[in-house]
């Protein structure tokens, strides 16, 4: 697993109780660089969510790595999105395919958020990234 993700999730792991956990997640969201409006096109909109979630995903051929950016109009989803980006950004398709987002979210006590019935689009995002990684392998 990459070091950014480790650094980013440290505070969530040690958070005492769910309220602190949410606070940390929302903090992560706040720190996420704003996504340029030009990238917030309908194509990048993750469908079927109550909140608006954009995920921009590109493949950098020269670096052989995934390039991700994203945004959401809600704080919690934006924070979860920041986790996903930290998990996958800059990885090669081979590395990305090795990642099991479910295990990571489970470890952080956030697995509920990966359930499709939550309607937050997190699962759809993970699926989209994994599909891209598969295609580029």
């Amino acid at each position: 697993m990459n070091s950014t993700f480790k650094a980013v999730t440290k505070d969530i792991e040690i958070a005492a109780g769910w309220q602190q956990k949410y606070r940390q997640i929302m903090l992560l969201g706040k720190q996420l660089p704003a996504m340029p409006d030009a990238l917030k096109v309908d194509d990048a909109l993750v469908k079927g969510c109550e909140s608006k979630v954009w995920l921009y995903i590109e493949f950098d051929h020269s670096e052989n790595s995934l390039v991700l950016a994203g945004d959401s109009d809600t704080r919690i989803v934006k924070g979860l999105l920041a986790l996903i980006l930290a998990l996958y950004n800059g990885l090669t398709p081979e590395q990305a395919a090795q990642i099991n987002a479910y295990d990571e979210f489970e470890r952080l006590g956030l697995i509920n958020h990966l359930s499709p019935s939550r309607g937050n689009g997190i699962k759809a995002m993970v699926d989209k990234i994994q599909t891209m990684a598969e295609q580029k392998r």
Partner: peptide, 13 residues
Amino acid sequence: DEHPFDLATLLDG
């Protein structure tokens, strides 16, 4: 201006 999703998620907690 808070998104209703955030409030409802926290209330659920």
